[in-house]
Structures are given as structure tokens and as C-alpha cells.
Amino acid sequence: MTATSTDPSPSPAVPYGDVLVVSELVRRFGDLTAVDGVSFRIAPGETYGLLGPNGAGKTTTISMISGLISADAGTVTVAGQPMGQNRTDVKRHIGLVPQDLAIYPELTGRENLTFFGRLQGLRGKELASRIETVLDLVGLADRAKDATKEYSGGMKRRLNIGIGLLHRPTLLILDEPTVGVDPQSRNAILESVEALSVEGMAVLYTTHYMEEAERLCDRIAIVDSGRIQAEGTRDELIRLVGGVDRIRLSGSGDTAAAAVTLRSLPAVERVDVDRRQLLLTVHDAPTAVAAVVTSATDAGMSLSDVEITRPNLESVFLHLTGKGLRD
């Protein structure tokens, strides 16, 4: 499925700044504080990720944002209006795609979209047009007449996303939408989400897959134990762990002379010698590697292998929490 915009109409100007403002949210379940002072903002057209392991408080946070449960403390503002459990007018700005599938298996894909579209207040030609647009966006136009009980897990997930998009929400909330799907369907879902940001929709995306957050999100909050441990762009977060890359050179020859030569390169911060290997700490390894290889070879080292390691969000999470992302 190609991720292209299917709705050419421009996003209307909005009379507010950020689409979503979350301030000091707290939610307790007995003695457990599931969400502990969470705050963040999402601008129009921005995809914002909540990245953390299962049980980190992501789903509880979005349940409060969407008005499904009340907060013990803190506030949520959507499209400039305060959210509450009885604020139906504010909830109309939100498209919520939950982890649990919200579709009727006996109905076809088109019938599911028609049913939910009517619940959202769509009728007639507007509803028919939106259904066609959404089916195309989520790649289900050719299966629209099939009962959804015949869909694969990935197709059901994509239909779930389509239902959340029907009424053109200002804010789309996706709660781990790729859980339990095959790689092909997962990629199709990610392509659909990428297309939404092109159309100017604000997206809140929760996941425990680091690679999804890196691919989709303009900014990312790393969440653990109900708290935001760090927030920023991918590059800003990686700078928390030093922001440097590593190059491992393996081979034979004069490794000592090569180490001396490599230490003089501007991009090289440190060189450690380990038998027949040189371990380099560098800035921007993809740019520096050509000069590194040339210098090591000219200094008398015969290379058998060159390995580049770059820090990622997994490294950041481990640095901040002392545990792996999926622990």
C-alpha cells in the first residue's frame, strides 16, 4: 500500500495553539499510581509518541485524555477546550483507536464503517465519500464487501484505524495499533499513520516498539512507572547517552600505528586497542567511516571487518531506567 494523501482538502485554520495539552495528570488504582504527573503537548500536524514497556501507564494516560476515565489530578485540553467524562462536544475532536478491536465480525468492512460513521453524525453523500477515502487510506477497498470475521488480524487493525478516521478528528489516538500483527500488515499500518501527518492531523501514538517510534514520531516521551522519564526528538533523546557512534575495526598489521593515526582525526573522540581490533568513539560514523578506513589502511592495518554501532532509543531507555524496553 502506498502512503499517499487521499484527501486533498487543506486543514482548516484553528483558533487555538496546541491540539492537545496534558498537564500533571495523575491516576491511582488503590495503592498503585498508574500515572504520576504526566505533562506534554501536541501541535497540529505533529505525531507524538509515548514509548514504554507494557504497564508503563500509556493506556491509562490516553483513557484520561479521551475522557473514558477521570483523572485524580491534572487537566486535559483538546482543541482549546477542557476534557471531561461528560464532554461529548470535546470528544468529537478525537478519533480513538484502542488496543482491543472495536468492530462487528458479522458485518462487512463497509457496513462497519457505515455504522460507526452514523454514530459520529455522518450521513448521505458525506458519509459515502468518507468511507471511500478511509478504505483507500487503510488499504481495504478491495475487501470492503467481505465480512470482517474473514479478515486477518492486520486487516482488522487497519479497519479499526479507519473507523477512528471517519469523522476527520483533530486528534487521532492510536494505542499500540500493531500489536499481534504480521510484518506486512504492520508496515501497512505504519504507512497509513505516516500519511496522516502529511494531511496535518495531530497524532498521539503509544507503542513499546522502539523502531516504530523512531520511524513515525516527531517527538517522543519515554514513559516508565507512570512517569515521563525524558522527552524530545530522536536526536535530542540520543544526546542524553552521549550522542556518539562507535566504529569497530578488525584486522591484522600495525594496529598500534593505526591507533595513533586515527586519534588525530577530527571526528574521532577516542581509540581503544583490543588485540587485533580498534574500538573508536566517533561523531557521525556514516560520514567519518571513509576517512577512518583510509587512515587505518595507510597506517599499515589490513582490515577484515568494519562495524558501525549507533545509539538508539533502546540505549536511551536502558540509560534512563536501567532495564530493557520490553522487560
Rank of each mutant, 00 (worst) to 15 (best):
S315Q: 03
I189D: 11
M201C: 13
T297K: 11
D7K: 06
H167S: 13
G17K: 09
D7G: 04
L262H: 00
L166I: 03
R263C: 11
I42M: 13
I228N: 08
T255E: 12
T61I: 14
N54E: 07
L50R: 03
M155T: 05
T294F: 08
L25C: 02
L320G: 04
L174H: 05
L171Y: 05
R27N: 06
R186D: 06
R123N: 06
V134Y: 04
V19F: 08
Q81V: 05
I247L: 07
R215N: 08
G200H: 02
G300N: 03
V78H: 09
F29H: 08
T2M: 12
R28S: 13
L265H: 09
A288W: 01
E211S: 11
L278R: 10
V76N: 02
E191W: 05
P44L: 00
D136A: 04
A285H: 03
I238D: 06
D146G: 05
I228C: 13
V193N: 13
I65D: 06
I228L: 11
A296H: 04
L113C: 09
D284L: 05
G74I: 13
E236D: 02
V138E: 03
A13W: 01
V19T: 14
P44F: 00
D100P: 07
A144I: 08
S252Y: 05
S225K: 12
S152E: 12
E194K: 12
H319G: 05
V35F: 03
G324Y: 13
G121N: 14
T281Y: 00
T61R: 07
V35H: 02
V273D: 09
G154L: 03
V26D: 01
G154V: 00
L107C: 04
G164Y: 00
L249I: 09
V21Q: 15
H283E: 15
G232Q: 12
Q229G: 07
R157W: 06
N312W: 13
V244T: 13
V21N: 12
D218S: 07
L171D: 13
P15D: 13
D89M: 00
P15T: 04
V241L: 05
R326P: 14
I220D: 03
T88Y: 09
E111T: 15
G154K: 06
T88M: 12
E212C: 10
Q85I: 08
L135C: 14
V134N: 11
L20N: 00
Q184V: 15
D254T: 01
S129P: 02
F317S: 01
I222L: 15
L280V: 01
S192N: 14
E176D: 08
V244I: 09
T297C: 13
L51Q: 11
E236F: 10
S252P: 08
F317I: 02
G49Y: 03
L166E: 05
